[in-house]
Every structure is written in C-alpha cells, then in structure tokens.
C-alpha cells in the first residue's frame, strides 16, 4: 500500500490511514523525503490519527522522517497521536517521538503556517490555491 502525499501549495500532507508493515513505513519515509526535496516544500504535516499501534520501530521511523524533513529545510508536525498510543509510547520509554505534535490536521496546518511565517518565508502557499 502506498500512502498518498497531497500537495497544498508548498505544504505536503500525508495521512497514514492504515497499519503499516515495516517495509511500507520505510517506503513512506523515502517517498515523503523525496517529495519534500522535489518541490522544496516549506512544511509537512503527517497525520497519524488512524494509527492505533505505534511501536518503537514506527516511532523511530516517524522521528527519523521528521528529522530528515527538517534537515532539508522544511517545517514538520505530527498530527493526531491517539491517547492510548501516547500512553503506550511514554510507558515504553522516553523520547520515542521528538517531533512537534498537534491534536489534529487543522491545528497542524495552522502551526505550519505560523512557523513558516515566523521563519520569514513569505512564499507560503496553501492559500494561493484557493
């Protein structure tokens, strides 16, 4: 299964809708990082609302992906971590997810806009498609 990566101006939006195998998770990481580089994205929102299990492997993939995206120069937020996922991750060990998180995609996009604006990047798009 390939995770669709949607483009809103220079923001990328990826919503993980079902449980991924390790291979699919790595594929997603590489697809997303390539896409960020390709369009020189300013921000990326990864929505994991539908994930009801995030084990240490998946947490690492999410973390690494966020770090890679930041290295390229884009802002990133993880959206919709489920309460039981949060509890489990913290019980398992600290710092499994180090990226910035928001309750949902709406807030994620708002936060990206704010951060991109505060970086002084006025090219933020997303509104320009409307």
């Amino acid at each position: 299964m390939k995770i669709p990566i949607l483009r809103l101006g220079r923001i990328l939006l990826a919503s993980i809708q079902e449980d991924l195998t390790d291979t699919e998770a790595m594929q997603f990481q590489s697809d997303l990082v390539n896409e960020v580089a390709e369009i020189e994205a300013l921000g990326v929102a990864v929505d994991i609302t539908a994930l009801d299990v995030v084990d240490s492997y998946m947490a690492r993939v999410i973390n690494d992906t966020a770090s890679m995206v930041r290295l390229l120069g884009a802002e990133v937020v993880i959206c919709g971590v489920q309460p039981f996922v949060a509890m489990t991750l913290i019980e398992m060990g600290r710092d499994l997810i180090g990226a910035d998180c928001t309750f949902n995609l709406d807030q994620g996009l708002e936060q990206l806009k704010t951060r991109i604006a505060s970086r002084g990047d006025i090219r933020f798009a997303g509104d320009e498609d409307e």
Partner: peptide, 27 residues
C-alpha cells in the same frame, strides 16, 4: 499485533490495555 488486539478486545480489556498488548506483541 492485530490478533493481540482482537483477543484482548474480545475479553473486555479496555483500549489502553489492548494498545499496550498489541504494541508489546509487535515489539
């Protein structure tokens, strides 16, 4: 991990326990 969640749901464990068990089985 899906099977672990199904079995624990079936026995009436709450979602917190289902998630813990499914995650443990995944690890």
């Amino acid at each position: 991990r899906h099977a672990a969640r199904e079995h624990s749901a079936r026995l009436g464990f709450g979602r917190a326990y289902q998630t813990r068990l499914a995650t443990a089985v995944s690890e």
